[in-house]
Design a protein around this nucleic acid. Structure first.
Lengths: 209, 209
DNA sequence: TAGATTGTTAATCGATTAACAATC
DNA sequence: TAGATTGTTAATCGATTAACAATC
C-alpha cells in the first residue's frame, strides 16, 4: 500500500496533517485543496502535495482532496487502526494529566492500568483506570499483552521502571521523566521533555529582541 | 557576539545541546570532544562542530570543548540569562504538573501566579505559587510585567484566555490546550501537544512491524 | 468546455557529511 | 615533539519549491 518510501521529514509532519484533517472533519469540511490546507498549516501547497504523493493518490484533479479518505489513510500510516494497549507508571500530577487526556479513547489508545508506590492511591481510580501497587507491575505485564509503557515517575525511579517494562516485553516506552533511559535497541523510546518546548520558546523570544 | 546566522535546524538542536551539557556538568565532566558528545546525542561529530562554529569558537585544538563555557554560551543563546516571568492559567492536573516542574527555578523561569475558575482552589498554593481567581488575570497583567502566559485550561476556554493574555501584553503563549490559538503576529505561540508525541511513537511502532 | 487543481519532474535551496590543514 | 581534535572548506545528500502537463 505504501507506494514510495516516506522520508523522515514527511513522517514528522504526519501527526500535524492528522490533527488538521481531524479538525476539518469535525467542522464538516468534506473537500479541501492542497493550497488551502497548506495555508492553514503554514507550509506550501507544493510541499503538501509532494508529501501526500508519497503514500498514494488521494486528490481529484480540479477538486482537491476528500477529507475523510485522506484522514483514514493518515490514521492507517500512523498505526491508529490497531488499538494500542498501555500501562502508566506514576500517578503524580503529570501521570494524572496523561491518564485524563480525553483524546486517547477516540484514537484507540487504552491505558489498562496505572501503577504507583503511594499506598493512598492503590485501589482508587483515575479517569476510570484502576491504580495498582508498583510491585505488581511485573506480574501484570506477564499476564497482559502491553505495547507501550508510559513513565511519569520522578527521575530517580525512571530507569528502574524502564527495566521492569522492558523485562515485561513492552515494545516502546513513552518517557516523561527528565532523563535519558537505557534500553535495548529493539525497544523504542519517545521522550517528551516539556522543558524542550519552553527552551524553544525562550530561544524564539530571545531571537526576536 | 553571534558570528554567523544560526540555521533553523541548528536552533532546534540547541535545547538538546543544553540538556546534554547540563548533564555533563552535573557529572563533573569538564572537557569533552565533539565526537564523544555527538555520540551521546546520536549525531555526527562533524555536525556538532558545524553547529557550534555558528556561534563562536569554543573548542581547543587537540583538547575538545570545555563544558562550562559552552553551556554558558548555549544558555545565553537560549535566552536563559534573562529571567522569564510567567503566569499559568488552569490548575488542573496538567497545570499542577507544569507548576510543579522542578527545573524551572534553576533556569530563571518564575511563575508569578496561577489563575483558575475553581473557587475551591482560590487562595491555596501550588508548588508555592498562589492561586487567584480567573477574573483577576487582566488586572494582574496590568500591574505586573509578564513575558509568557501558559495556557493549561480546557480547550473550550483557551481562546478566551489567550485574548486576555494578549490584551495584557504578554509576548508569548505556551499553549497546552488541544487547539490552535488565534493571536496577533507579534505574539509567539509555542504549542505543546502531547498527542503529537504519542502519534509519533505510534508511527514508529507501526513502521517497525 | 473552461477553470481548477492534482501529481510529478526538474531546479533550487539548505543541511549533513567528509576531509584535512591548522593548531594546541 | 607527536597525537589529538578543532574549525572550515568542499562534496554530497536530501528536502523544498517552482512549474506545468495531465485530467477531472
Amino acid at each position: 500500500m505504501v507506494t514510495k518510501p516516506i522520508s523522515p521529514r514527511t513522517m514528522g509532519r504526519l501527526p500535524i496533517y492528522y490533527r488538521y484533517l481531524e479538525d476539518l472533519q469535525r467542522l464538516g469540511v468534506e473537500r479541501i485543496s492542497s493550497d488551502q490546507l497548506a495555508q492553514r498549516i503554514g507550509i506550501t501547497g507544493s510541499q503538501l502535495r509532494q508529501d501526500l504523493s508519497a503514500f498514494g493518490q488521494f486528490g481529484h484533479h480540479g477538486l482537491g482532496y476528500h477529507v475523510g479518505p485522506l484522514l483514514e489513510r493518515v490514521s492507517e500510516l500512523l498505526g491508529l487502526k490497531q488499538p494500542h494497549r498501555l500501562v502508566l507508571v506514576g500517578a503524580g500530577n503529570l501521570g494524572r494529566a496523561v491518564a485524563s487526556y480525553a483524546g486517547f479513547a477516540r484514537r484507540g489508545v487504552r491505558i489498562g492500568r496505572i501503577f504507583d508506590v503511594d499506598p493512598q492511591l492503590i485501589g482508587t481510580e483515575i479517569a476510570g483506570v484502576p491504580v495498582a501497587p508498583m510491585r505488581d507491575l511485573g506480574a501484570y505485564l506477564a499476564s497482559e499483552h502491553i505495547d507501550v509503557g508510559i513513565i511519569a515517575t520522578p527521575a530517580a525511579s525512571a530507569q528502574e521502571t524502564a527495566d521492569i517494562l522492558v523485562a515485561g516485553g513492552v515494545r516502546a516506552i513513552w518517557n516523561f521523566a527528565p532523563l535519558r533511559l537505557t534500553v535495548p535497541d529493539r525497544v523504542l523510546v519517545e521522550h517528551t521533555h516539556i522543558i524542550d518546548s519552553l527552551l524553544h520558546l525562550s530561544l524564539r523570544l530571545h531571537m526576536q529582541e
